[in-house]
Design a protein around this nucleic acid. Structure first.
Lengths: 261, 261
DNA sequence: ACAAAAGTGTTACTTTTACACCCATGA
DNA sequence: TCATGGGTGTAAAAGTAACACTTTTGT
């Protein structure tokens, strides 16, 4: 500890009185996906003092719906509201506790967290994944003064605690749901091209798809509007732009893309 | 209160010291499916004093994996071990608290639960569903002296708190997973006939299926062994018996039944 | 012998896959 | 003018859906 910063009252309050406002033993963690330059990325925060990266997460307030806690975290971090956010799994490993994380955080202020403080107990965390429009998000690091980064899902290093596992599970869920949910709306800008959404699907599935069959299938879902504009840019024919047909998109979200059986 | 029973020390301990052993604010609830006489049923417990039915559930111990808590509840209730048990959703409504339930329970012993006791706070519950062989289960009601019943999923009345919602969600999950998981192994006896498993599928999907197409599809999965025995009984041709091919079943559980994409 | 339900196969239809040629764009 | 990548259509293959007659069993 080179220098001890003044302990912010809010942090102190968190430590001593947090348990009065915070639902005990439960947290939320968000795997926030964005798609940028044809790469699927997730938003990570760095715990500077601990020199380790983690998922954006937070506590659940007493009297707060757990889903709302996740929305709160998402809005706090991205400035975005009204987003595709989906719970995918609860993680209940008995070793999941943020002891090291919190100790390092508070250590910075010359504070040692007392034994048996509510903060150091095991937290069961509920995992959510969000699909956001990369270009619309304005990321904020948190009061714990972390920094952030968008990291290619293919190149994620070692994360805090079981966060790598959580990301894996989120990806797995996303892959599964791709088959029956209209993914893309929130990951892509309003107007997008077929090659763009195809790239998105290929990235998520980690697999090349046939251009023509992909387009036929996608259009077959009937959830797109074809615009009379093209996106110029490359040394090739300019692809058409599409938007999601909101009404049909909402229906597909509810009913799924296939009936099966 | 006609007569107050002696307050059992274990219950008293639960009230006063439970928070020392129990992970705060989190519980598990199990939707236990069984298939009997061609009807899909779930196991419900009656809270006698409250005259209301509920899902079998329980607390999570400190240092206990949440999944293990669900296994514990399942084993406690059914005597069964090594069962298909799957987490499907966490329920975090801020109103979910067992206040009435617990009050009525303790009232029976002439005890009023103090305000702010750990028992009466909101619990976030993690929902699990299990598929069990109805004929193999030996059901135990719990120390809270409830009684139990297997109830047709089509005829479930009003349950405690949000338990109806939990059951709905479990059914929905089961329906979705039917498309890519080999359901049936745990719901059916070791040997079963095509008409039996078809009935099971029809019940879960709430839809009639074509006998011939169903059989072709099922057998196409390659996870059954056809036996040289038939099940006699009705005034009609005796259907053949099948068993699951364990090796291929396990593989299908892991990889799913289709590849898609 | 009759009613009830199971065994079995074929044909039409739909969906998926594989594949090739032409066209607009920017360098 | 050329390289790049997008637009488009068709034929073969696989999978799904629809459908009828025969067989076994118990009464």
């Amino acid at each position: 500890m080179s220098k001890t910063k003044p302990f912010p009252p809010t942090l102190k309050q968190l430590l001593l009185k947090g348990n009065e406002q915070i639902h005990p033993g439960v947290s939320v963690d968000c795997v926030i996906f964005g798609f940028h330059e044809n790469v699927l990325k997730i938003l990570l925060l760095e715990v500077k003092q601990a020199n380790i990266w983690s998922l954006p997460g937070g506590f659940v307030l007493k009297n707060e719906e757990v889903d709302d806690a996740a929305y709160r975290v998402l809005a706090l971090r991205t400035g975005l509201d009204n987003i595709f956010l989906q719970q995918f799994h609860a993680f209940g490993n008995p070793n999941r506790s943020d002891v090291t994380f919190h100790q390092l955080k508070f250590q910075e202020y010359g504070i040692k967290i007392p034994k048996d403080n509510w903060l150091t107990q095991r937290f069961v965390t509920v995992g959510y994944y969000a699909l956001i429009d990369f270009s619309a998000a304005i990321i904020k690091a948190d009061s714990y003064d972390s920094t952030y980064a968008w990291v290619d899902v293919q190149k994620i290093g070692t994360l805090m605690m079981d966060h790598n596992f959580i990301v894996e599970k989120a990806l797995e869920t996303l892959r599964t749901q791709l088959a029956y949910l209209p993914i893309g709306k929130n990951l892509l800008p309003k107007k997008f091209t077929m090659p763009e959404i195809q790239k998105l699907y290929e990235t998520i599935l980690n697999k090349k798809l046939d251009r023509r069959n992909f387009q036929r299938k996608m259009l077959g879902f009937g959830i797109f509007n074809k615009l009379n504009e093209t996106r110029k840019g490359g040394a090739h024919k300019a692809p058409f732009l599409y938007t999601f047909n909101d009404k049909k998109y909402q229906k597909a979200l509810k009913d799924g893309l296939y009936g099966s059986w």
